[in-house]
């Protein structure tokens, strides 16, 4: 490799409805490495970008929620395959932020783990209910709808994957506010998603300042649930929870920073499903 080659740099943009627009506000902000050096100008998303992302996420619900569980599992597994092929790139990105590159392997393995849940979660979470009467009675989980997620600031890829995969595997669509200081792996993940078979709009990723954009997500009437895992400021979290009460969003706010490498269990999937119970009489 010639060492004097001028490398081609990437423009880091938003990911909305399967496309990569710049922020409609035209704003960007500087992303720096752990050592303080310049890495990139990332898009600084605005309220309008949040709204556009919610529209895209809502539009994607029928197709994604209506896909078979087997199909969703296949699509998610395909994403893991593509992540594997790009793992050097992700390792370089997280290393620039001072993270251990092993978190990339953990992230890929976690994606595979969640992919496998697609056609199993309903069996574990739902089931037949032995009611005291001649009725068929079945409870099944269904996706909640559009989930707004404030992704954890770090680990940049593992944290992101750990909040996105459990939300979409059950059929939700998501709007993600990526890590403010470490957004680059999120944009690269968007590139992976865009070239996988994931329908456009299922995952929408906004870079920028969650403190600015999260309130618009929390108060949006067409968002059904809110994941505040990435909100560290308790005052901001409280105000977001208050805003979420407007249309009774389901809110997830873990008590402490999760241990990202531990077995995540099924709680995150369970947080963004609605249990539907169907009754029918039995009779000849």
């Amino acid at each position: 490799m010639p060492t004097d080659r001028v490398d081609v740099r990437k423009t880091y943009k938003l990911f909305i409805g399967g496309a990569f627009p710049r922020s409609e506000s035209g704003r960007t902000y500087q992303v720096t490495s752990a050592a303080g050096g310049f890495l990139a100008n990332a898009a600084l998303a605005s309220r309008k970008d949040v709204r556009d992302a919610v529209v895209a996420a809502r539009a994607a619900v029928p197709k994604w929620a209506g896909a078979t569980a087997y199909n969703r599992g296949q699509v998610l597994y395909r994403v893991a395959e593509l992540l594997e092929g790009r793992r050097e790139q992700f390792a370089a990105e997280v290393t620039a932020f001072g993270e251990d590159p092993s978190t990339v392997h953990d992230a890929i393995d976690r994606w595979v783990w969640y992919a496998g849940w697609a056609d199993k979660f309903a069996q574990v979470h739902g089931g037949a209910n032995p009611v005291a009467g001649p009725y068929f009675n079945l409870s099944s989980p269904e996706p909640t709808g559009v989930v707004g997620i404030v992704a954890p600031a770090e680990p940049a890829l593992l944290g992101l994957v750990s909040v996105v995969a459990p939300a979409i595997v059950t059929g939700n669509t998501v709007v993600i506010l990526a890590s403010e200081p470490r957004p680059l792996p999120a944009v690269s993940l968007a590139e992976v998603l865009a070239t996988s078979d994931l329908p456009g709009g299922v995952v929408n990723i906004l870079t920028g300042r969650p403190a600015e954009t999260a309130p618009w997500l929390a108060s949006h009437q067409d968002v059904n649930a809110l994941d505040l895992t990435g909100v560290a400021d308790p005052e901001l979290a409280t105000s977001l929870e208050q805003a979420a009460a407007g249309n009774l969003k389901r809110v997830v706010r873990p008590a402490a920073g999760p241990a990202w490498t531990a077995d995540p269990g099924t709680a995150r999937m369970a947080a963004f499903v609605e249990t539907k119970t169907v009754w029918h009489p039995k009779g000849g």
Binding site: V131, S139, T277
Partner: peptide, 13 residues
């Protein structure tokens, strides 16, 4: 969802 019935309740449901 109650199909061909309505307002049925049970502790297991």
């Amino acid at each position: 969802v109650w199909a061909n019935t309505f307002n049925k309740f049970d502790p297991s449901s």
